[in-house]
């Protein structure tokens, strides 16, 4: 990609390449990227696209097909999918835009492009073994007891330690070294 200035306006111009689609194709969830025929039924079915102009699944998939790697990985776009799978249900060619965006997220994560809120949530899960340890106060304990439920939640936090070492330390190192 390069930029050129016309009439004082910066326009970014892209060169089409199949390299990014080939990369996405190899990631779990991204296999169907080249089946998309750009019919638009995903965008028509998408509640997020209906609620905001910022998000258009079909447009994102075309950007992947065109090879706009940097733009796609560094944008918030793939993180705006709320994974409701309506697009997957409706697509006639067997594409799941939701799955493709999950695949894009995992690539983006490897390169350190993760929204803050996701980073923090994952950090919490990998430490505590679950999401809401800090939110589980005495108040909630009492509520459970009143209902006859076990106030001890018995959540395991050791297994996630193994996962952190195996799958996330490398990422963290990559992030910190800025690669």
């Amino acid at each position: 990609m390069h930029t050129c200035t016309t009439k004082g306006q910066e326009k970014s111009i892209h060169v089409p390449t199949s390299a990014f689609a080939k990369e996405v194709e190899k990631v779990e969830g991204g296999e169907a990227i080249n089946k998309c025929i750009q019919c638009g039924i995903c965008t028509a079915s998408c509640v997020v696209a209906n609620a905001t102009d910022l998000y258009r699944p079909r447009r994102m998939i075309q950007k992947i097909i065109l090879g706009l790697r940097e733009e796609v990985l560094s944008s918030d776009q793939s993180w705006l999918c709320l994974n409701c799978r309506m697009c997957e249900e409706r697509c006639q060619e067997g594409v799941s835009p939701a799955e493709i965006f999950l695949a894009v997220r995992t690539i983006a994560a490897r390169e350190g492009h993760v929204p803050r809120v996701f980073k923090e949530a994952v950090k919490t899960v990998l430490e505590d073994g679950w999401m809401l340890k800090d939110a589980y106060t005495d108040f909630q304990e009492d509520e459970r007891e009143d209902l006859g439920l076990n106030p001890e939640l018995h959540m395991n936090n050791e297994f996630v330690g193994k996962l952190r070492k195996r799958y996330f330390e490398r990422k963290k190192a990559a992030e910190e070294s800025g690669s």
């Binding site: 111009i13 060169v15 089409p16 750009q38 065109l66």
Partner: peptide, 15 residues
């Protein structure tokens, strides 16, 4: 070649 990809709303250039 230069054109605009309508569905990605992006300006393209190719040799």
């Amino acid at each position: 070649m230069r054109w605009k990809d309508v569905l990605a709303d992006t300006d393209m250039e190719f040799n």
